[in-house]
């Protein structure tokens, strides 16, 4: 893996601190970069990503906007088309409904429609995921909306290391890149080098090797899948866990190579199962590795329901290690 890791020494940071460090690195490296969004400057974002950046880079580069998602995304499109490198913050990805035209019809298509004469180096940071009783309009995982749009790239980091590296990669990319973060992961700690480094967009990572079964997953479900893999190990099944990290472009090779070794696969994501990325990944596995499969490709995702509010209901809604193990035991007959 061609990751430009420059600092081998271990240092632990939280996911939220890694995001902050990434954005600081981008603003330091790129004089044409700026951050715009709701409560990003004075408040440092409701999630705390941008704390201290207003003081360090000033109000010309860290900009509070009105609550106007379509205006904010349009500002990013126009600024990028005319030579700047915006970092646009959409506080919760549930709010994309307010700006889907600027995303779908402008940002994603402008380069193609204009015959390649424009390019849009935009990084959009946004937040997904359930788990803290924020209910139906602040908890969704809507990445499939974005992955369906030619012209966009979509990454979903599971760890602090990947969050920092993918944000820096996104900011150096000359295409619009959505970095979809996870709110339950904000406090998780992991090793993060202090220097600037990149995690390549479009490269999956095998986070746990195994020879009997492949779980393809991303974002916070990587950790639930690893937990499930440990449980399955005690049942004699060695599970390989593939963290996609990027959904668009999708690293099909790593997935297919893994399935060719293990002959059984499951896709796990927090998004609603119906019409989710799992369907696309399962289809690709069956197109490209049908002869290697010893079982149908299974899918674990949220049920076809809005995210509920009450903690008990919400917990029964979100996929977790137990549900993954139960589904795997049925599939593998163990």
């Amino acid at each position: 893996m061609a990751e430009s890791k420059t600092q081998p020494e271990a240092r632990e940071l939280t996911y939220v601190a890694a995001i902050n460090e990434a954005v600081r690195a981008v603003l330091t490296e790129q004089p044409d970069a700026f951050v715009a969004g709701e409560d990003v400057a004075g408040a440092g974002s409701v999630f705390g990503y941008y704390k201290g950046l207003l003081e360090e880079f000033g109000a010309e580069r860290v900009i509070d906007t009105p609550i106007s998602e379509e205006g904010i995304v349009g500002l990013g499109v126009g600024a990028a088309a005319t030579g700047l490198r915006p970092i646009i913050d959409i506080m919760f990805m549930d709010f994309m409904g307010e700006c889907m035209d600027e995303i779908t019809n402008q940002m994603a298509k402008m380069r193609y429609m204009f015959g390649g004469t424009a390019y849009l180096p935009i990084t959009v940071l946004t937040m997904s995921g359930a788990g803290i009783s924020m209910a139906a309009q602040h908890s969704q995982s809507l990445e499939a909306w974005l992955c369906h749009l030619p012209g966009l790239k979509v990454v979903m980091p599971a760890t602090p290391y990947d969050a920092k590296g993918l944000i820096i990669s996104a900011s150096r990319d000359d295409n619009p890149v959505f970095v979809v973060l996870n709110k339950m992961s904000l406090g998780m700690k992991g090793e993060v080098p202090e220097d600037s480094y990149t995690v390549p967009i479009g490269e999956a990572s095998i986070v746990r090797p195994g020879e009997n079964f492949t779980i393809v997953t991303y974002s916070r479900m990587v950790h639930e899948s690893v937990k499930a893999a440990e449980a399955l190990s005690s049942l004699g099944v060695e599970t390989e866990v593939v963290d996609l990290r990027s959904l668009q472009p999708l690293d099909t090779n790593v997935v297919i190579e893994s399935v060719k070794r293990t002959h059984r696969a499951m896709v796990v994501h927090e998004a609603v199962r119906f019409g989710g990325m799992g369907g696309e990944i399962a289809a690709q596995i069956q197109e490209l590795a049908f002869d290697y499969l010893d079982a149908p490709v299974a899918r674990v995702g949220a049920p076809f329901s809005p995210v509920p509010f009450s903690p008990q209901l919400e917990q029964s809604y979100i996929p977790n290690a137990d549900k993954i193990v139960a589904e795997a035991r049925t599939l593998l007959d163990v």
């Binding site: 500002l75 990013g76 499109v77 126009g78 088309a81 915006p86 035209d101 600027e102 402008q106 402008m110």
Partner: peptide, 21 residues
């Protein structure tokens, strides 16, 4: 910066261009 098939989509983009200026 483009004709536009979506009615009303241009003004936010123009705001972005003005922001660059």
């Amino acid at each position: 910066l483009g004709a536009n098939g979506i009615v009303g989509a241009g003004p936010p983009i123009a705001v972005g261009a003005a922001f660059t200026n």
